[in-house]
Nucleic acid binder design. Structure first.
Lengths: 243, 243
DNA sequence: GGGGAGAGATGCCGC
DNA sequence: GCGGCATTTCTCCCC
């Protein structure tokens, strides 16, 4: 226990990334208040002083502190406490550790950013460059058109002199997507003082209720999926490899 | 390296939670496609077979696989590969490890759930039980009222025979909150065949544009903050302790 | 399992 | 810094 303690203190001082496997209770106070009863967790303190608490299942942390928090470690009777504070955000988190299973620490260095393809932004670009994905007579004019009430993914016209507003969703369009589209259409009608505005949702699919709302307001749906260039590349690779 | 390998293989077989500190490259293919250049990261494999990749900074994982994925570890030349698959979700993630800094593993057990106070739900309940927070003559009728176009946080009436719809936000109400409220108000007007419907946003604050939109549609704003009982308790404690 | 919406959301970009 | 919004969102609840 004592050697774990000094390892953690030393690693904190050296700004290393620290992982602690332990049995603990957790109290949080800040934007909300929370308590987590005794159980086994991973405590991670990163080199930017973010703290994460992960249970042995699930994707998301069960508790956390944002970067630039401060952490102190204290032994009290048979327990070890990690006390974390973020004074600017008025956030506090206390870990009461009953048993430590392991401690690992190392000075990790990483400045890389994720290169990602298939986002909504990529979808907008694809549609902007290939307007026929929306309609044979759709002509794209701009992307990310700014409005007081938000920005429009793809903005264009059709041959009947309508303004066309396209809202992209990378997965399944929902009620929120339709109200978002409606907000833009109404705003553009107001600004341009015209009723000749079409609203289109471009997404792989749409929920039934959202589709009903869409039709009720005279908007349209186009089945479009986000581009995934790397997947295509990978498939080509497989083909070349004889798969 | 070889002892790390066998430790990881053994821990995988025993369903332990594993943490690997390493220098690696990562490729992901699934809902989108991504690549992450060489850098130092934490690889976490949980006992439910979720996999997380964390950089030494930031709150969120940079890459991940959902629970119930399968993971295999392979040595090839001087590199170690972790190959993760989730066939039902058609997701794939490969970690190419150039150097391992440390490996920790342990059979973590935890069935606890977070007890949290201060959510939007708590806010709805507070308003439901203390309707005067909204208006002296507001009477609450129900919570989570179901609508085809979504469910309403707090539903009630006033003394002028209006139906009152309250949408709660625990932080700052935005344009989405207003369009959400509008959707409910319009739906209730339609169902009840009446125009006597008031819409109210209850939140600590509201963005300027959202406030403008709110006023444009004749809705109202009430400054209400979510309850934080534990914080009050803690303050009382401090007072007792002489702080 | 899908729909709907919150989250102590986080993170990104633009003004 | 705030505003607006996507996210490989994740998670929960309810049908």
């Amino acid at each position: 226990m004592q050697s774990f303690l000094s390892q953690i203190e030393s690693a904190l001082a050296k700004n290393e990334t620290i992982v602690i496997g332990c049995s603990c209770e957790i109290t949080y106070s800040g934007r909300a208040e929370a308590f987590l009863q005794l159980g086994d967790r991973l405590i991670i303190i990163k080199s930017d002083k973010a703290l994460l608490v992960h249970q042995p299942t699930g994707n998301a942390p069960i508790n956390y502190m944002k970067p630039d928090s401060s952490h102190s470690i204290i032994q009290q009777d048979s327990a070890v406490w990690i006390k974390s504070k973020n004074l600017p955000l008025k956030e506090y988190l206390d870990v009461c550790i009953h048993a430590i299973h392991f401690v690992s620490s190392h000075p990790l260095k990483d400045g890389q950013k994720l290169e990602l393809v298939g986002s909504e932004k990529d979808m907008s670009e694809m549609i902007y460059k290939n307007p026929s994905l929306i309609d044979p007579d759709f002509k794209s004019v701009s992307m990310e058109e700014q409005t007081k009430y938000g920005f429009i993914d793809v903005f264009g016209t059709d041959r009947n002199g309508n303004i066309v507003i396209v809202e992209c969703k990378r997965y399944c369009a929902d009620l929120g997507a339709v109200t978002q589209l409606r907000r833009y259409v109404e705003r553009i009608k107001e600004i341009k003082n015209t009723d000749k505005v079409r609203g289109i949702i471009a997404a792989p699919k749409i929920t039934p209720n959202a589709d009903k709302m869409l039709k009720d307001w005279g908007f349209e749906f186009r089945a479009v999926s986000p581009p995934k260039y790397l997947e295509r590349y990978r498939k080509d690779q497989k083909r070349l490899d004889g798969f």
